[in-house]
């Protein structure tokens, strides 16, 4: 359960990324966030795990206040929120397994993780996460030797290894080709329906959003301009979010999947 009340974020230098946002997301929802770049999508996701501190308002994740929380509380909240990045953000020079085990950092004593002495139970969790995204055969390969799609799956496995209640994905397919994009989106949708993990995804392409999303949130200039069922989205909604009509550039090239 996520509750945002009157959340605003002003960056140093005066840029307002979010303006008085109110939002409630129930457990197990699959929500797609759309908007122009700079509309505040990334900021919204990062407010939820405290990577970007909200300057105003209240943000509660599973009943715990994130805004102004102590470092210890933040670590605790973050340990239950998986995050997936546009640029994957893997430690490329180490193995896939080590990358996925990073999802266990908050649950393992620092001295053990620092020396790579991961407990067997955590290794097992990491293995299962890799199996769920279907690249367990790459366990001992260096992350830099994987393709972009495979790297993003490692990113998803790392988030899964946290055994999260909430999954945040920041433009997870923006760096991938159309076929791989659909596979990754499929993975995320399956994880949401199989495990019931609440999922929040920033997307650029509207057709992907309509294909996989159930609830759509539209942001424009840091303000909430649309929040509703994806089936209700029409050309007017689109114009509201993007400030213009839909064009071919807004949909992902059609491919057989």
């Amino acid at each position: 359960m996520i509750e945002l009340k009157n959340v605003s974020v002003t960056y140093r230098g005066g840029v307002k990324a979010l303006r008085n946002l109110d939002l409630t997301i129930d457990d197990g929802e699959f929500v797609v966030v759309v908007g122009l770049s700079g509309a505040g999508k990334s900021t919204l996701l990062r407010v939820l795990n405290g990577l970007v501190p909200a300057t105003e308002g209240s943000a509660k994740v599973d009943g715990i206040e994130v805004v102004g929380a102590s470092n210890a509380t933040l670590r605790m909240v973050r340990s239950r929120i998986g995050m997936i990045f546009q640029t994957f953000n893997l430690a490329e020079r180490t193995t896939v397994l080590n990358n996925v085990l990073m999802g266990r950092l908050a649950m393992v004593p620092s001295w053990r993780s620092t020396f790579g002495l991961w407990p067997a139970a955590d290794r097992e969790i990491a293995m299962q996460a890799l199996e769920r995204v279907g690249i367990v055969e790459k366990t001992y390969v260096r992350a830099s030797n994987l393709s972009g799609g495979q790297q993003q799956r490692v990113g998803i496995a790392r988030a899964l290894a946290q055994q999260p209640t909430l999954m945040l994905a920041d433009e997870p397919v923006a760096a991938l080709d159309p076929v791989t994009s659909r596979q990754v989106m499929g993975d995320l949708a399956r994880i949401n329906s199989d495990l019931g993990i609440t999922t929040l995804i920033n997307l650029h392409f509207l057709d992907l959003a309509q294909e996989y999303g159930r609830r759509l949130i539209g942001l424009r200039d840091g303000e909430l301009v649309f929040d509703g069922d994806i089936a209700d989205v029409d050309d007017d909604t689109f114009r509201e979010i993007y400030g213009r009509s839909i064009t071919a550039g807004d949909v992902l090239a059609d491919t057989d999947t």
Partner: peptide, 25 residues
Amino acid sequence: RGPVEAVEACGGRWISRVRWGILPQ
């Protein structure tokens, strides 16, 4: 900065940011 942000998002401490976010790079 990406891997460091990933470690932070996993709830890692300072030492983990250094050990897993920066050191391998």
